[in-house]
C-alpha cells in the first residue's frame, strides 16, 4: 500500500503528514498528532464523539480518510482556545455544568460551534438539531442546550 502525502491546515497551522490510505482522520489526529480530544465512540458515525470541523463544517472524523483532508482545513477542539482564552461555548459549558464524564464534550462543543458559526440567534429546535448527531449518556442534554443558548446570547452581545 502506497502511503499518501497529505498537506492541510490543522488548527490554523500548515501540516504535512504521510499516511496509509485507509487511516481515518480520527486516528491520524489521535495516534500520530497527539490530539486526543476527538474520541472513538462507535467508529460508525453514530455517536458524534469524533466530531471536528472540515472546511468549517462539523463532520465525523471516523468517517473521513486522512487522505481526504489534503488541501483542506481541519479544526479540532484543541484549536478553540486562543492564548489561554476559552471560546464562549467552552466557558458556557463550564458555567452551565454541561459536562459530566466529559467524553462526548469535545465532539459536542464542535457540533454546537457549527451552529453558532452560522447563527447567533438559534431557536431551541435548531439547538437540539445541531447536536442531534452527538450522543451524551450522562447529562440528558438539558444543560447542554442551556450552554449553547447562553453562549449564543453572550456572543450576540447580550447580558
Amino acid at each position: 500500500m502506497k502511503e499518501i502525502v497529505v498537506t492541510f491546515r490543522l488548527n490554523g497551522k500548515e501540516t504535512t503528514v504521510s499516511v496509509p490510505p485507509a487511516l481515518t482522520l480520527l486516528k491520524l489526529l489521535r495516534e500520530r498528532l497527539g490530539l486526543t480530544g476527538a474520541k472513538p465512540g462507535c467508529e460508525r458515525g453514530e455517536c458524534g464523539a469524533c466530531t471536528v470541523h472540515l472546511d468549517g463544517a462539523p463532520v465525523n472524523s471516523c468517517l473521513v480518510l486522512a487522505a481526504q483532508v489534503d488541501g483542506r482545513e481541519v479544526v479540532t477542539v484543541e484549536g478553540l482556545e486562543r492564548g489561554g482564552e476559552l471560546h464562549p461555548l467552552q466557558e458556557a459549558f463550564i458555567e452551565e455544568s454541561a459536562i459530566q464524564c466529559g467524553y462526548c464534550t469535545p465532539g459536542m462543543v464542535m457540533a454546537a460551534k457549527g451552529l453558532l458559526d452560522r447563527t447567533l440567534d438559534p431557536s431551541p429546535e435548531e439547538i437540539r438539531r445541531a447536536v442531534s448527531g452527538n450522543i451524551c449518556r450522562c447529562t440528558g442534554y438539558t444543560k447542554i442546550f442551556a450552554a449553547v443558548r447562553s453562549a449564543a446570547e453572550k456572543m450576540r452581545g447580550g447580558a
Partner: peptide
C-alpha cells in the same frame, strides 16, 4: 438523513 455531521459529508 442521519445527523448534521452525516449530512455534511
Amino acid at each position: 438523513v442521519g445527523s448534521p455531521q452525516i449530512r455534511n459529508r
